[in-house]
Design a protein around this nucleic acid. Structure first.
Length: 98
DNA sequence: TACTTGACATTTT
DNA sequence: AAAAATGCCAAGT
């Protein structure tokens, strides 16, 4: 059941489903596809290239520690609600797996 | 089998 | 508000 390859596909599909201008969290994805948030993050680091990885943020709205600057540009272009703290306004921008 | 590591989360200092 | 400590899950060594 759920081979590693399938698990990766599930995660990537959820990310692709995130609407423009919204974001989701690793925990939400983990809750939807199973496993733990760390596992989701690991999958993203290995196979998150071709998907809008900037729409996936940490639980408090902070950006991934590896590509914040890139992600911030995307947010400015897409009109994602940002906070003065430099993080995403997770309260208004959060999108959960439907 | 045991220890270490990692795009995390939550609670406590 | 920011940093450290603890818990969690799976994979690699």
């Amino acid at each position: 059941m759920t081979d590693p390859e399938e698990y990766v596909e599930l995660v990537l599909q959820v990310v692709e489903r995130v609407p423009r201008g919204r974001v989701t969290t690793y925990g939400a994805i983990a809750d939807a596809v199973g496993g733990g948030p760390r596992q989701v993050g690991s999958v993203m680091s290995r196979h998150g290239g071709p998907v809008p990885w900037w729409r996936v943020v940490r639980a408090d709205g902070s950006l991934p520690p590896s590509h914040e600057d890139e992600a911030r540009q995307r947010y400015l272009e897409e009109g994602t609600p940002l906070r003065r703290s430099g993080s995403v306004d997770i309260v208004n921008a959060f999108w959960g797996p439907q």
